[in-house]
Design a protein around this nucleic acid. Structure first.
Length: 215
DNA sequence: GCGACAG
DNA sequence: ATCTTGTCGC
């Protein structure tokens, strides 16, 4: 495990060093549980709250949750989000009685300038299949997404597809989905859809968000 | 040099 | 992310 008390410049080096270890093909057995991961901060920005909600993949019922409080040590820098949030998430992960089969993270997977968003970083460190589910774009370009739920367009960077922009609810802003680790693009797309019911965000994320913000 | 920029 | 009430639309 690499250090976390690093400068932004060192963080970028770490991303470059780890990026080629990210696996972008499906690599998992039966998926029984899916976990939502989210992080929140206190008014002063001094403490980070990480929350994990583990759901039964078939029923979307919550089977276990964990929360961890961790001092905030890294600033928010676009492209370096994982250095701010992952330490707290790792701490919360240790509190679970069993590791989930797959992670749905708040933020990008490989739809990142160095193909190493928070879902890729977290998935790689834990060696758990992970998917990035972001509420807005960090990098890449795409066509307009039709307004109907289920419609989607590819998220491109030059000639490379790095994700999919997916409308999870009619007439509501789409989500940016990208593989994090041990998951392919199509599979990431399919799994996110399966976790969505009547709201824009997947149930996993909704539960984790509630926990992280003390609700 | 001028914007853009996950949470 | 967070600070915050009511309000417009399906």
């Amino acid at each position: 495990m690499h250090a976390w008390d690093v400068s932004p410049k060192e963080a970028v080096k770490i991303q470059h060093a780890l990026q080629d270890r990210v696996k972008l093909k499906d690599d998992f057995g039966e998926i029984n549980t899916v976990a939502g991961v989210d992080v929140g901060f206190e008014k002063n920005n001094t403490v980070t709250h990480a929350a994990i909600a583990v759901l039964d993949f078939a029923t979307l019922d919550v089977v276990e949750t964990a929360i961890a409080h961790h001092p905030t040590t890294f600033p928010y820098v676009p492209g370096l989000l994982s250095f701010r949030e992952v330490p707290a998430v790792l701490e919360a992960m240790l509190k679970l009685s069993a590791q989930p089969d797959l992670l749905l993270c708040d933020g990008q997977g490989i739809a990142h300038p160095r193909r190493f968003g928070i879902a890729a970083h977290l998935g790689l460190l834990l060696d758990i299949p992970a998917i990035g589910v972001a509420k807005s774009r960090l990098t890449g370009t795409h066509a307009d997404v039709p307004l109907e739920k289920g419609c989607h367009v590819p998220l491109m960077d030059k000639d490379e597809q790095i994700g999919v922009v997916l409308r999870t609810r009619t007439n509501v802003k789409p989500l940016y989905i990208s593989p994090g680790h041990r998951v392919g693009l199509d599979t990431a797309h399919r799994i996110v859809l399966q976790c969505v019911t009547k709201y824009r965000l997947p149930e996993t994320t909704r539960h984790a968000h509630k926990l992280a913000s003390g609700n």
